[in-house]
Write a protein that binds this DNA or RNA. Structure first.
Lengths: 270, 270
DNA sequence: AATTGTATGACTGATATTGATTGTTTTTGA
DNA sequence: TCAAAAACAATCAATATCAGTCATACAATT
């Protein structure tokens, strides 16, 4: 078994049981204690679990605020996300009806909308976005109802999917965890995948917001193939080769650090 | 069982039963008294419980974080709201299904739930509450869908009212702007009044959270008469006369700064 | 073929956890 | 108030778990 594969299984076991001992994991994964301990160390560094004496426990307690301040320390990714959000904002027009999917990139777009005075209807499945968007008195907000996943704070479930089908959306903006030419758009959680698919199917213009780190990755749950979206907004990619391949799929790849025709600039408090 | 796992279970047992003896915990967790005592010492250092001779009780006086700066304009009322929220929290039990109405008092209750580990289902029409409640991994959250009023950030409208009717709620907690014996509960916005009425009609136990400044006031839109609620939790009122009149209407008036039977004390030095 | 890098498991001294035992403190009830 | 009972803290030895080191295995690269 490959190391990554084994670590993925550790996470799965932890999500199922909330905790696991080292011995336990050894038996299930046919690995030595040393290997399991090394895996746990790696996964703890990635903040995917919490080590305790004897094993590990899952800490599904990941408030968005914490994540935000974490990224703020990281710096570089937050900057990229802000750049991507600016480009996405430049695609908005007065009287658009848009959908904003939950995520750390789309939240930057929500903040931009909240600081602007654009007249717009915003649907979202991310309850915590509303306080940012509310800063713009000309924005009308709608939230999907349903159960909330505590770690991403996104609404998921059948009620939400049923509701989204009742609206006509002009533009939809979705964040994903992984983009691959072969496997399309994928994300780790099944219910979120269902939700994102339903949203994409309702949008007339479909935008994916994803920084460069998301490319050529695959997560557990399939959303849709690449061809199901119109535009991917990302931070700058090194390889031109990748861009060409996306063009062949009928997808426009926009890089945040370069200007494209048809965009107008948005500059914070202008 | 791993130490951390066992300590989490201790917290769970305490939330379910409000208190536990050392012997009791020994039996449930198959550990010696020495081990349990050590666990209790650790958990007390982490301020997750309070040790007493013979065992431990829950002590939900959670560390106050920076959030005060956000609400600083509220000033003296914020203290009253926190006190009211603490009393409201003391009415919660494991596996309750509650509704939390949007408002500046109920948000303090949301924060308490988020910092606790009580197992509870929370329905709300206030999207911005979700990030607080998400701090508690054992809380399941549901949000009503619909249009959001930008000034209160509460979901209103027919879709939300239709949705709330599909659920059975154990306890509902509502904030109001004005309470009057003659005119009942009133609030300035028509749609919010509709919403609050729908919620109150669904609740088995109905609690109103209102500080003393809300009494003997009338706002534009009628919600329901006083008799439609079971308990009003408020800060201390000067006049005993008022309390008597509420009692005649079949409403229990609880003052946050005084102790009442049936409440468990969760702030030792209050 | 030699080298580099990574992954793995075995080993070892260090650290943490546990239950028993002891003597001390607190509670209880006459 | 006093004495018995209960609960407690401190200590110790046995056990479990941990982190670090080393040698081996294997694949990719030189």
């Amino acid at each position: 078994m490959m190391p990554e594969e084994r670590r993925q299984k550790i996470i799965e076991i932890l999500y199922a049981n909330k905790s696991a001992t080292v011995k336990n994991l050894c038996d299930q994964l046919m690995a030595s204690e040393a290997t399991i301990r090394r895996d746990l160390t790696v996964l703890e560094d990635e903040e995917k679990l919490e080590r305790v004496h004897g094993g590990a426990i899952i800490q599904s307690n990941v408030p968005i605020e914490k994540e935000d301040t974490y990224n703020e320390k990281e710096g570089v990714y937050l900057y990229e996300k802000k750049q991507i959000a600016k480009v996405a904002f430049s695609y908005l027009r007065e009287n658009d009806s848009i959908f904003l999917d939950g995520g750390t990139t789309t939240i930057e777009l929500a903040k931009l909308i909240g600081r602007s005075r654009i007249k717009i209807n915003v649907f979202t499945n991310a309850p915590h976005f509303t306080q940012f968007i509310a800063g713009n008195p000309k924005a009308e907000q709608f939230i999907l109802g349903g159960r909330i996943r505590n770690n991403t704070l996104a609404v998921v479930g059948q009620l939400a999917i049923d509701t989204i089908r009742r609206f006509r959306l002009n533009k939809v903006f979705i964040g994903v965890n992984a983009i691959s030419l072969e496997y399309g758009l994928t994300t780790p959680d099944f219910e979120e995948a269902e939700m994102k698919r339903a949203i994409l199917e309702k949008g007339r213009e479909r935008y994916i917001l994803a920084d460069a780190s998301k490319f050529n990755k695959v997560a557990l749950c399939e959303i849709l193939p690449i061809s199901a979206v119109d535009t991917i907004i990302t931070s700058s990619l090194e390889e031109d080769e990748i861009k060409e391949k996306f063009k062949l799929e009928g997808v426009l790849l926009v890089e945040a650090t370069k200007k494209e025709a048809g965009m107008y600039d948005y500059d914070g408090d202008a």
